[in-house]
């Protein structure tokens, strides 16, 4: 698993990358009450704002970690946004994307580096 400085996790599944937010991010955000996901099929560039997360207190954006195409979104989160607080690294993934270039993922942190970042 790889991690971004924006507190996203990236997990490779074949030629796809599954993206979600870390435990640390979900606890910092607090109670999540709304999630807006991109449409399936959307072509995105790295750092595009593609997910909106709203907690009771405030809104935040999730940036696309890679160039590519959104191939699947986790519809469950639209009805149950609080799942992101319960299981951010498991069931509550945000989207699966097909990156233009899988090598782009190498620039991100491994778990040890990420743990250091948030410690």
């Amino acid at each position: 698993m790889k991690f971004t400085e924006e507190h996203e996790w990236l997990r490779v599944e074949g030629d796809l990358v599954v993206v979600g937010i870390t435990e640390h991010a979900s606890s910092q955000l607090g109670d999540i009450v709304f999630i807006e996901l991109p449409d399936e099929g959307t072509t995105v560039s790295k750092d595009d704002e593609i997910v909106v997360i709203e907690s009771v207190k405030a809104a935040s954006d999730i940036l696309s970690p890679l160039d590519g195409q959104i191939v699947e979104i986790n519809e469950m989160l639209v009805d149950e946004p609080s799942k992101v607080n319960e299981d951010p690294v498991g069931d509550a993934w945000f989207f699966k994307m097909k990156p233009d270039n899988m090598d782009q993922i190498d620039e991100y942190m491994d778990e040890a580096a990420y743990s250091k970042l948030i410690s």
Binding site: G30, D31, V56, K57
Partner: peptide, 12 residues
Amino acid sequence: PLQYKNGIMSEH
């Protein structure tokens, strides 16, 4: 204090 361990929703 913004919130304690149980969070805004629970405190509310």
